[in-house]
């Protein structure tokens, strides 16, 4: 078993028995895509909803980051209907200082993740999103489980 660390704005691939790890999700969203048949998958840690300025790193953005992640797995032989997603993060910190907390980046990141996954026909089988606190996630590629830890809300498995 090896732990593979996914930094902010990155996507990484792993196979059983690897564990994909990403830390410090605040308003960012982590998307774990699991191939239930081949027991492998990828983890994306994106920062912002849309790439509006031709940034050359797609993985900083929900769109196209999620589509690129799915494409990556399909190019490696996964069948799209075998893929499932879990999404984590998208919190809103310091909400009292935001002019418009309803359109906070965290919320928009969650929305874009749900939207793109729906458009791509990949079902979301687990979520731990929102709130006002940071999270870390460990994506177990043997079981497909995602362990979410946070300083404020403790630990849970989705």
């Amino acid at each position: 078993m090896k732990k593979i660390f996914v930094k902010i704005g990155e996507m990484k691939y792993g196979e059983t028995p690897d564990i994909l790890v990403t830390m410090g999700l605040g308003s960012c969203v982590g998307v774990a895509i699991y191939d239930v048949r081949k027991k492998r998958g990828a983890l994306l840690h994106f920062l912002l909803p849309e790439n509006t300025r031709d940034d050359d790193n797609p993985f900083k953005y929900g769109n196209p980051g999620i589509r690129e992640t799915l494409k990556f797995l399909v190019n490696r032989g996964s069948i799209k209907s075998d893929l499932e997603a879990k999404i984590v993060g998208g919190s809103v910190m310091f909400a009292q200082l935001l002019k418009n907390p309803d359109s906070a980046i965290g919320k928009r990141n969650i929305e874009i993740a749900r939207k793109i996954l729906e458009q791509e026909g990949v079902s979301i089988t687990g979520e731990d999103v929102g709130g006002d606190y940071g999270r870390s996630m460990e994506f177990n590629l043997e079981s497909g489980e995602v362990r979410v830890t946070s300083y404020k809300a403790g630990e849970k498995v989705i």
């Binding site: 999700l25 960012c28 965290g106 940071g134």
Partner: peptide
């Protein structure tokens, strides 16, 4: 009170 990375990115 939280993880520094989550605080800074947020």
């Amino acid at each position: 009170l939280d993880d520094l990375a989550a605080v800074l990115t947020s």
